[in-house]
Structures are given as C-alpha cells and as structure tokens.
Design a protein around this nucleic acid. Structure first.
Lengths: 112, 112
DNA sequence: AACGTTCATCGTATATCGACGATAGACGAT
DNA sequence: ATCGTCTATCGTCGATATACGATGAACGTT
C-alpha cells in the first residue's frame, strides 16, 4: 500500500493527490470542523448532542457526521438508541502530517 | 487581520472555522494539489506549462489557478502575453500550521 | 496588416453539495 | 400496546463545483 517516498515524486499525481484531496474535502466545511472540535472535548457524543451545539437540523448533522465517518476522521459505534461518535485522533494527526508533507515537498523543491 | 493565537480558542467557532474551511476547500481537489506540486518545482509557471502537465483543458486549468490565487495559495503576475503563477510558500505553511493547530486542539482537549 | 500564441472569460452541461422536512426503524418508558 | 426519543435515510430544492468548447483581448512575429 505504501510506496516508497521517492515514488511519490514519480507519480506525484492522481493516487496520493486524490487520497489527500478526499480527506481535505471532509475537513473543508465549517460545520464539520466545529463538529470535530466538539467531539474532541468529549469522550463520545451522540448525534443529538452535536445538533444542540450547531443550530442545524438533525438530518443535516447526521449527514455531516456520515461524511466524517466515511473519511475516517470519526469512529462510529451504535449504542442502544443512540449512536456514539468518537474522534479519531490518529487519523487527524495523519492528515496533519500529510498536509505538512505536501508543504514540505513544495518548499524543499525550490528551483534555485 | 491577524488575531492573537489565543483568541482562536475563545472563538473557535465560525470565524476561524470558515476561514480554514475555505483554504482547505482550495486544497481539496487533486488537480489543484498537482498544480501546487508542479509550481513548487519551478520559479514561476505560465498557464500553458501547467496545461501540458495535467491533461486538462486550458480553460479548466485557468479556473483551477484562479481558485488557488483567490485562496491566497498562489501569487499571480501578468507578464506580456503570459501569466506567471508562483506558489506562495508562506501561505502553504500557514495552512499547514492551521491544520496542525486544529489537530492539536482536538488532541490536547481530551476529556479524561 | 495578418497571423500565431497565450490567456481569461462566457456560456453551457452535468454532477455534487448542503440544507431541510418528512418518514420509518429501533429502543426505552409508561 | 402505546407513546416519546433518537437516529438514518429519502426526496427535494437551490447553490456550487467541475469540465469543456468557443470567443475575444493582448501581445509578439512575420
């Protein structure tokens, strides 16, 4: 799955770029950023919790949570009636590292 | 324009979230990530340069470049016929720092 | 002057996003 | 069994994103 770092330069393109873009897309919405912040302050939140914080319809929040889960940034587990959402700090850290890597690539490969 | 870093914690919410989301949105497209990588390898590129790398129509590339410029990730300067696009490494680094800050916030505020 | 090059913009078509209300399923409480 | 709560999903709607070709402006070259 992980190719060597140098291969990333050969195929700079679609593979890694697509993957990173997909994760950043999940992050690129204010409501989802706020959801992550809220989740980070609690061990696990149910959907209603988040709804009360955000002033958005329950269905909308549910969709945002789904996006975050599908992007791998939030873990999901079904309680009885509730659904528990828990932030995935490792995945978050992974994105941070990926962005830092991209920036590093862009800054280190200065032409002259 | 730049509030103090601690103010970011007070008003974690919409303002900074929106700003970060907007910049991440500019980054969340594979073509734009590849454009940034390409720009990083050259002092400045004209639109046609990028077109030849990307296998996209010239108008499409022009639009992607416009998105990057409007997000502040790329600087624009008009040559004679050409348009020169240059990566803004500081802005890139700023985004990286913002993402790292968000992740830090999410990881440091563990409930227990 | 006529032509080629480079680029931004316009118009268009399609797809996806973001938000909502309505609804149905699952579950606990009465 | 009935009611209330919590949630996911469906359908819908408007807005936005993405891609393209066509076009015209600006400029250099012949």
């Amino acid at each position: 799955m992980n190719v060597s770092p140098s291969a990333d330069f050969n195929e700079c393109g679609s593979a890694s770029a697509k993957a990173l873009a997909a994760k950043l897309a999940a992050l690129s919405h204010p409501a989802r950023i706020e959801i992550l912040k809220h989740l980070s302050g609690n061990r696990a939140c149910c959907c209603k919790d988040v709804v009360q914080q955000l002033d958005l319809a329950q269905s909308t929040v549910s969709q945002h949570l789904k996006v975050l889960v599908e992007a791998g940034l939030v873990r999901f587990s079904a309680e009885r009636q509730r659904s528990l959402y828990e932030i995935d700090r490792e995945a978050l850290a992974g994105i941070s590292a990926s962005v830092a890597g991209l920036v590093d690539t862009c800054c280190s490969s200065r032409p002259t």
